[in-house]
Amino acid sequence: MNNPEVETAPWYLKYGSRGLGTASGILAMFMGIWACITITPICLVAGIFQIFAGFIITLIEAPCCCQFFDFVTVISTRIEQKPLWYKAVLYVLLALPGISMCPSVSTFLGSVAMVAAGAVYAMLSLGKKADRQEMRANAQNLNPESNQTALLVEGNDAWSTN
Rank of each mutant, 00 (worst) to 15 (best):
Y91I: 00
G118N: 06
S100D: 11
Y91Q: 02
V74I: 13
C36I: 09
T77F: 10
Y91E: 01
A122I: 07
G98P: 03
A28H: 05
F52Q: 10
E5I: 05
S17H: 01
C43H: 11
S24P: 06
K82V: 12
L20H: 14
A95C: 02
T8N: 12
M31T: 02
I39F: 10
L94Q: 04
L151F: 00
W159E: 04
C66E: 04
G127H: 04
F49V: 11
Y91W: 00
T149A: 14
C36N: 06
I48N: 01
P10M: 13
E5S: 01
M114I: 01
Y86L: 14
M1I: 12
S111D: 03
V120Y: 14
W11H: 15
I56W: 10
A150Q: 10
V105N: 12
A46N: 01
A122T: 10
T149L: 13
A130H: 13
A28K: 06
A158N: 08
L59V: 01
E134F: 05
A88E: 07
L90K: 00
I57F: 13
P103E: 08
S111K: 00
Y15P: 06
S17R: 15
A88R: 00
T38L: 09
C36D: 03
I39M: 03
A35K: 01
W11K: 14
G19C: 09
T149P: 10
L126C: 15
F71D: 14
